[in-house]
Design a protein around this nucleic acid. Sequence first.
DNA 1: CCATGAACCTGGTCGC
DNA 2: TGCGACCAGGTTCATG
Length: 269
Amino acid sequence: MPELPEVETVTNSVKKHIINKSFKSIEILWLKTLHNFTTVDFKQKIEGKNVIDVFRRAKYIIIQFEKNLLAIHLRMTGKLYVVDSFDKKQKHISLYLQFDDKYLIYEDTRKFGRFYMYENMDILNDKLGIEPLSDSFSQKWLIDGLKSKKRQIKSLLFDQSFICGLGNIYIDESLWRAKIHPLALSHKISKAKIINLHNSIIKVLSDSIKLGGSTIRDYTYDFAYVGNYALNLKVFGKDGQKCPRCDYIITKIKVAQRGTHYCKKCQRK
DNA sequence: CCATGAACCTGGTCGC
DNA sequence: TGCGACCAGGTTCATG
């Protein structure tokens, strides 16, 4: 479930429960979930320390402590939520942390998600690109960025070291709004279309955040999380249906190994 | 620099 | 009902 709007939604939901709290213990059920630290590191550096902030950077949820931070990446099927109690035999729970009399649960069917521990944000900031909802993401920045590369636009938008937070759903939606073919070469796209793309990215992401993302499932504890943006999708998952703009049938192809939905009639190369 | 394919995992769906 | 093939909102690594 995780592109920028979903990660933002999860971050805010978890934040209100764990801010100013401290974790008493960690229990790991799928060992690989901890990517660069161990239970011993957790006990020494995190346990008993106050959570001073929780925020999102790209598709990472950051839990900030005074001297260290946990960065959580949900990948495809990760879920992070707080409960008062849970069934320890429940399938797919990769790990859980205890605080007060509650649990912060990390559940992940496909087990791709990871927890990282860092002293600060430097390592992540070095490899992550611009935040599309920040002020520095300007029209000029996007024009210069696309013109300086010669890449298929969908692949470029996937590149987290260029722009971070976009994924398969919001790329298809943004390109449809901007009337850009997903295979168009970045340096050949007109300025006018790039400006439309800039507006589309901001519009699609911020609208989705307002509706709690495009999540189909909710998270049982916090019902704030039933993402309703799925109802607003125009092309993603709509192959075989009519384009809402021109009535032509939406096509599905593969771009960068990912299912890609677009309208052949209004998204020309 | 850029594109492609595989790997990491489990579960759902579709066709036969 | 069963079985294989293919698909899934992500990232990383190896290869050409």
